[in-house]
Amino acid sequence: MKNEHISLQVEALSCIRDDRVLFKQLSFEIKGKQVLLLEGKNGSGKTSLLRILCGFREPDSGEIYWCGNLLDNQYYAQMVYIGHRDGVKDELTVQENLLVSTALGFASQTSISQALKKVDLQGHDEVLVQSLSAGQKRRLSLARLLITDNKLWILDEPFTSLDKDGIAVVEALMTEHVNRGGMVVLTSHHDVQLHDIKPQIINLS
């Protein structure tokens, strides 16, 4: 499948939580080489929207299409989600965690050591995750983006607990991914600075 032809299309999506309408009739489409930034106040439904895109929540109405089809295994093989929780196991080493992640998806060209180098965790392969700091754990979960073969990144507040360098690293990773033809959907309270890529912005509040 050519990168240019991938698309994520959302049609008339509504989400109601505890009798409160978070958003309704939301429609958008993103293609390869595009970034979508969701903005909005706390509780405006950013995370809910991302979780609907992941298939964890059913939308109250509306449909999501990946390359023209409803979400299927094809979609899950090409997306990565990084949520509030890092999704790494404290009692496993950095390398063991990433090995499980590659086994669950399909491995990419990037090896684990290359990925760790990109997120500045080189030399930590054999370290137990419980002895890493919160920021380092975050970097580890971001390394997951690189080791599996994927097109769509869904990132929920990827900059949480990262230092300045870390934020720059994530922005560089996103730029590289988008330039290779991938797409990113993210929420952030920080300003996102990507070289010569202008994110589409949807404000949910």
């Binding site: 992941c54 298939g55 964890f56 295994n73 094809q74 899950y76 093989a77 997306m79 990565v80 989600y81 949520g83 509030h84 929780r85 890092d86 999704g87 790494v88 196991k89 404290d90 992640s101 669950l104 998806g105 399909f106």
Partner: peptide, 22 residues
Amino acid sequence: RSDFDDGSLEQLLLSPHPTSIL
């Protein structure tokens, strides 16, 4: 329990492989 608490379960469910086998 622990997979649920640390988010690993979400990652498991997002795998393209059949969840029931995992």
